[in-house]
Amino acid sequence: MAGFVRHRRSKHIIATLSGFEADLLRSLAAQLIELLHNEAAIPTESADPLERLFADFSGPTTLPEDPVLARLFPDAYGADEVDAAAEFRRFTESTLRDGKSRAAATIIDTLEEAGLPTEPTEEELTIDVEMDGPTAEVWMRALTDLRLALGTRLEVEEGDEDYWYSLPDDDPRGQAHHIYEWLGYLQETLIHALTA
C-alpha cells in the first residue's frame, strides 16, 4: 500500500488497498462500532412521552470502565470537579458515541462501495478507494479513534519502540503493534493528501 494521495485532476483522495488491508480496516471499524454501542450509553426506551423527549439528555454520568472507552471519552473536567464532569458527560457522551460510530461506519461503507465483498474471499484483489474531502475528513477522525483504541488495548507508551521491536515475529502483541503503526501510516498519508 502506497497510502493516500490527492488525485491531480479530480482533487479526490485516493488509495489502493489489498483485499487483506481493506478487510482488516473493515473488521477494525466494525469492532469499534460494537464497542461504542455499549449498553451503558444507550438510553432505555420509555413509554412516558416526557421521558422520551428528554432521552437525549439522560446519558451516562461516569467515566466508562473499559480503558478504550475511557480514552475515547475522557472527563472534560479535572478530578476535583466530579459533578461538572458528570453533568457534561450526561449531555454529550451519547452524541459523541453516535458520531464516532457513524465515522467508523463510513470506512465500512466506503470500502464496500469501492468493491470490497461483504464476505471474506480467497480471491486476490485490490480495492481502489476514492473519496471527496469531507469523506476523507470523516476517515481521518475514524482512523484516529481506531489508533487510540488499539494503542490503549496494547498499552503503547511514548518511547517504548524498543520493546515492540524486540518481540518475536510470531508474538500476537507485536503483530497487533504492526497494525497500530500501519494505522498511523494511513493517518499520516491521509493528512498529507488532505493538506496537499
Rank of each mutant, 00 (worst) to 15 (best):
A103P: 01
A105R: 06
L143P: 11
V138Y: 00
L150M: 14
D145S: 12
L143W: 02
T126F: 12
R153N: 04
T135H: 09
M131G: 11
R147F: 04
G133F: 13
A103E: 04
T152C: 06
E113N: 14
P117N: 06
V129G: 07
D145R: 01
A142D: 05
L146E: 09
M131H: 03
A149V: 10
M131P: 13
D128E: 14
E130L: 12
E122F: 13
E130D: 13
A136H: 08
D145A: 14
D132Q: 15
L146I: 09
A114S: 13
A114P: 03
A114L: 02
R141S: 15
L154W: 06
G151D: 01
T144Y: 15
L116H: 00
E112G: 02
T126R: 12
E130W: 10
G151I: 03
E113Y: 12
L150R: 07
E124Q: 11
L154F: 08
L125R: 03
D132I: 15
I108S: 03
G151L: 07
A104K: 08
G115F: 02
A149T: 11
L150N: 12
R153A: 12
L111F: 08
A136S: 08
L148Q: 12
P117I: 00
T152M: 09
E112S: 03
E119W: 07
D145Y: 06
E124G: 04
A114Y: 04
W139D: 11
E123L: 04
I107T: 03
V129W: 05
L154G: 06
A149Y: 00
R141T: 14
L146C: 08
V129C: 09
I107Y: 03
